[in-house]
Design a protein around this nucleic acid. Structure first.
Length: 591
RNA sequence: GGUCCGGUAGCUCAGUUGGAUAGAGCAUCAGCCUUCUAAGCUGAGGGUCAUUGGUUCGAAUCCAAUCCGGAUCACCA
């Protein structure tokens, strides 16, 4: 139990003993004591004054004395300032915490809770390579999955690959027209980039064709449909749906190139999936559900034969689920896939990591799932994240301002290499160790930069800031960890023992922070928010660095102090590593 | 226009069951390497928490209105 919870419980019990009344945790607040006051944790008394009819001083004194009497192992002293009861936690409590947990690499993690959750993330299109926006998505998805695991969930990471549709046909048509058989091998390009280039090529040529037609007097709307490239694309889409062998062959070939490219990127950024869905397999799902539910009255049919659901009583509009020609729309297959996920894996919860431009869509999806009685519908969550923008504004593929994922990764690793070599600390590393280290630091910087911000907020990606390795960054925390490891490597850690020594401020500050780690993991899961972990880990690293410059481990004042500080160092390293692991960031033993 | 999200230091961001004098990082300035890794530490300056009103012992936090920015409201995906 966290110290906040213990303190709440102790306060409730003490109040009951003193005044014979039941209180709940909502009747009063427990906070960390502000640094300029004496004490560690504070009970705010104001809200209790009316219920007890006492003055702050009287209540504070009664409660403080009772807490000390009944929980002498927990508290050592108290003081009252205005309506704040500041309590000092006893040193033996902190020392015990340290003794029990400093070597526990699972500290803060919950045992399995028997619940299964699917986290869907990444969801790329197979017509272009991944970009900066995908990176935020991938890092969030992966991290949330880890955070949920740490909270005892069984997690399935899934991915839906948008491998069909008009946009895919566009790159296929352009390749046919302009590529002269170019392949990833012949061009020495990554497959996803090669295909992406032809998607761009399509748009360029198509625009030219439209312009020509318009210049020759055709109306723009007509020109857009009549341009030869568009006509052949539409035809190809029909042929694909009809299963024409040559089209499928080309489609398979080009998608294969893309997957080879994606695999390289995913491996580099550390994304992986337990389940992969392909839209080419799922795009017909959901129609049967609509038919069944139509009979039950959940959906209704309009005169033209199209099928709708009326969500106006839930504050939304009517939503189309089947076109008048009986074909399905985007949401139809999502309904079908949601059901399939349940039937295949019996999941209790489903999380979709999708940009906030789809908030409305996801709201509708959840509502429909509830209305058709999908068992886990109430536990469908949209982890909605804001767009990544550049200091100059939004990324626009038209203007070539899209930040390519592969290029960015390489740039981060190169920067890590540059800084590391300049520091001159790794001269004895082997080639392999160096490559590994540069990747660890470069990826660490990038992941931390993208995860340290609250997901739901749109964020600005500043290229100069993102390669910064000082301050609130991944490498700062990695560096702190490497420093600790360097200390610990030189010492033989004595067997764990219970200590009986007093704590200096920098020592105590770290323990207080370490105690909060389990609560932070809990909070991060509740909010589906990795930035809570990032902020916490940074704060802990800061505390340790302060400690490090003020106090010595190796040359501690006494043998007992040395053991204390070693325990502190080891536990801090463990927590930093666990925390960063939840963000998908590796820690170097040396840097 | 309806709905949703956001507005906190020059910049990027923390800050929720409402709590004490609003915090970090970057940038700026001043210091600290003979001592466990200076990718570090210490200090200084920097704020109308968008605005106005309300709720109360107490509001960046809750409520209302207004202003600004964004997303969305497709028989696109």
């Amino acid at each position: 139990m966290s110290i906040t919870n213990s303190l709440q419980k102790a306060t409730r019990e003490s109040l009951a003993i003193l005044y014979g009344k039941e209180f709940s945790d909502n009747d009063f607040q427990v906070n960390v004591t502000r640094p300029d006051f004496e004490g560690d944790y504070t009970v705010v008394l104001f809200s209790l004054l009316k219920k007890t009819g006492l003055t702050p001083d009287k209540l504070g004194n009664d409660l403080g004395k009772e807490l000390l009497r009944s929980h002498s192992h927990l508290f050592s002293s108290f003081n009252i300032i205005k309506g704040f009861l500041n309590l000092e936690i006893s040193e033996s409590y902190w020392l015990e915490l340290l003794y029990l947990n400093h070597n526990d690499i699972c500290y803060g993690k919950q045992p399995l809770n028997g619940k299964k959750v699917m986290v869907e993330y990444s969801s790329p299109n197979t017509n272009k390579p991944l970009h900066l926006g995908h990176l935020r998505n991938n890092f969030l998805g992966w991290s949330v999955a880890e955070i949920l695991k740490a909270n005892g969930y069984e997690v399935l990471k899934s991915c839906i690959i948008n491998d069909r549709g008009i946009h895919i046909c566009k790159s296929m048509i352009a390749w046919q027209e302009y590529a002269n058989g170019e392949t990833p091998e012949s061009s020495e390009k990554k497959g996803d980039h090669l295909v992406g280039d032809y998607y761009v090529k399509f748009n360029d040529e198509y625009k030219k064709q439209v312009k020509e037609l318009v210049n020759s007097g055709v109306k723009e709307e007509v020109a857009e449909k009549d341009a030869p490239l568009m006509r052949s694309t539409q035809l190809m889409l029909q042929q694909w749906e009809a299963g024409k062998p040559e089209v499928l062959e080309l489609w398979n070939k080009m998608n294969g190139w893309v997957y080879e490219g994606f695999d390289i990127t995913y491996k580099k950024i550390g994304s992986d999936f337990d389940v992969k869905y392909f839209e080419s397999n799922t795009y017909l799902l959901g129609k049967d559900i609509v038919e069944q539910e139509l009979a039950k009255g959940t959906f209704f049919k309009k005169e033209d034969g199209s099928v709708w659901i009326d969500l106006s009583r839930d504050g939304l509009d009517e939503k189309l689920v089947l076109r008048k020609d009986g074909t399905s729309v985007y949401i139809t297959q999502d309904i079908g896939l949601a059901k399939q996920k349940y039937e295949e894996y019996k999941i209790d919860q489903s999380i979709y990591v999708i940009g906030d431009e789809q908030n409305y869509h996801m709201k509708v999806l959840k509502l429909i799932c509830q209305k058709i009685g999908l068992p886990y519908a109430n536990d469908i969550h949209h982890l909605s994240y804001g767009m990544v923008e550049l200091p100059t504004g939004k990324m626009k593929s038209r203007e070539g301002t899209v930040v390519d994922a592969d290029e960015l990764v390489e740039e981060m690793i190169a920067t890590a290499k540059h800084h590391t070599e300049a520091s001159g600390k790794v001269k004895d590393f082997s080639e392999e160790e160096l490559t590994d280290l540069f990747e660890t630091i470069g990826m660490g910087a990038m992941k931390f930069y993208l995860l340290r911000v609250d997901p739901k907020k749109k964020m600005i990606f500043n290229p100069e800031e993102s390669i910064e390795f000082h301050g609130f960054t991944g490498p700062f925390i990695q560096y702190t960890y490497a420093r600790i490891k360097s200390i610990v490597r030189k010492e033989t850690i004595p067997p764990a023992e219970r200590l009986n020594t007093s704590l200096l401020k920098p020592e105590k500050d770290i323990i207080i922070s370490l105690e909060q780690f389990p609560s932070v993991i809990l909070q991060a899961a509740k909010e589906l928010n990795p930035s809570a972990i990032a902020n916490y880990v940074f704060g802990l690293a800061q505390l340790f660095n302060t400690f490090y410059t003020v106090l010595s481990v190796a040359n501690a004042e006494s043998a007992e102090k040395k053991i204390l500080r070693l325990q502190l160092a080891v536990m801090t390293a463990n927590v930093l590593k666990s925390g960063m692991q939840l963000l998908g960031i590796k820690m170097p033993e040396r840097m």
